[in-house]
Design a protein around this nucleic acid. Structure first.
Lengths: 236, 236
DNA sequence: CGGCATATTGAAGACCTTCAACACAAGTGG
DNA sequence: CCACTTGTGTTGAAGGTCTTCAATATGCCG
């Protein structure tokens, strides 16, 4: 059997969602008033609390974050997982307040983009404006796909989609590998997909029996990608 | 029993999502190169097909639209319903192609905003930029709420949320009324909420027995709003 | 009024959850 | 180093929710 372990991954600036901005505008200016590069967080660190004012948009350099809303009954609802190259904070721009809390799932390094200053930059620089509008548009499209997934797919399709989506998201950032390290625990996956941890566990078992995945704790090896895609249902 | 019929509603520009732009910039210029006001579509007209180039963003003046994706197996998946004052097309900005098809559910009048020209206007006009960024941010936040709903709520909560959300969306545009006219058929509601028409029907019956709603075909009267909110689950 | 699409209702079954027991890994202290 | 704890993941059995299939009812538009 192939080795299913994979080292932690950091995105090169060239492949980051705002890389074109950093490389052409911020360049080597490490003391930039807008960009604070590679701030480090430890596993389980809370990076922002819901309700706090929005100071920065966050861009993941390495590691993994989750964002979640807390219901009035105190339950935690995962709203997203963020991987190297991903940007988060768009949903807070309108109200200038964090709607979600954000927590590190592993040791994570994050580039902070000062929100106020960045918005002024958008006014003056067409390139920044285009990148931002495109990113927001893409985010809306991606969410729409997720909405379709949740409203139409059964448990097996959801989990298969989830794994396949992780694969494509890493690949998009230059990390093409059938080995996927879940920084995410089963209960977070379950919460995010609207299932229970027992169901997640059972489906992992089933996908292993079908020789589509090899699962060992948080390490996943995709053994049959075409079949995984088929199981994920056609909408991706 | 109160009358549960309500006349069709058109949004005044003051309360439309891009009203501030139209009123301050386009003003009374009806032959504007950017804005084509109040183009009329008949029920069931296809306004755009998935894959077509994005020429216009659409703003609903009166009536109702649905957008939907078509899967490789030919099934239709509703991605959204749009009411007077709503804007649609954001998800297509990045690729400059319609990802969804758009169809009129009733006789509908639409203000078309030329996409290319509007993007240039965004470059030159801070007010337009702010409005657009805010609208996109809000859209992302609203979608996130929908994602939570779909991943966490049961059938009853979904339908109650759906009705309550329609109520708040009309109210936002100045049409505060407990009478709601569904331009949407049961099967579209079911598709959108990830349920079957039978389940929708059963839950309508249940909510009527509980004296929360009065349902007569496409006309809904909210008879107990606080209870409806309670049934919709706490996340709104 | 008749015909067709849309909506409602009932019964059986599938899928996922719930509850409970158990397995496994990581970390702590004796 | 092992016993103990704790957190996390797996598995089984029973039950509930929603779907499926089928029959019936209602509404709409000629």
């Amino acid at each position: 059997m192939q080795n299913i372990y994979t080292p932690s991954y950091s995105v090169p600036c060239e492949l980051c969602s705002i890389g074109s901005i950093c490389l052409s505008i911020f360049k080597d200016d490490y003391s930039c008033a807008i960009l604070n590069r590679k701030r480090l967080f430890e596993k389980n660190d809370i990076i922002a609390q819901a309700g706090e004012p929005l100071n920065n948009l966050l861009v993941i350099h390495s590691g993994c974050l989750k964002s979640y809303a807390v219901t009035s009954s105190g339950a935690e609802q995962i709203t997203g997982f963020y991987l190297p190259g991903d940007i988060l904070g768009f949903e807070a721009i309108s109200s200038k307040k964090h709607y979600n809390s954000i927590q590190a799932l592993t040791k994570t390094s994050v580039c902070e983009v000062r929100h106020e200053e960045f918005m002024s930059l958008m006014a003056n620089c067409g390139q920044v404006r285009d990148v931002m509008v495109n990113l927001m548009s893409q985010e809306i499209l991606n969410q729409q796909k997720l909405i379709l997934m949740l409203s139409q797919k059964n448990a097996e399709e959801r989990l298969a989609s989830f794994i396949y989506l992780l694969y494509t998201r890493y690949a998009l950032r230059g990390h093409v590998s059938l080995n996927i390290k879940l920084s995410v625990c089963r209960s977070d996956i379950a919460n995010y997909l609207g299932l229970t941890i027992e169901t997640i566990s059972r489906i992992f078992t089933r996908l292993q029996q079908l020789n589509i995945l090899a699962v060992k704790g948080k390490h996943i090896l995709i053994k049959n990608l075409p079949e995984l895609i088929k199981f994920s249902g056609e909408l991706e």
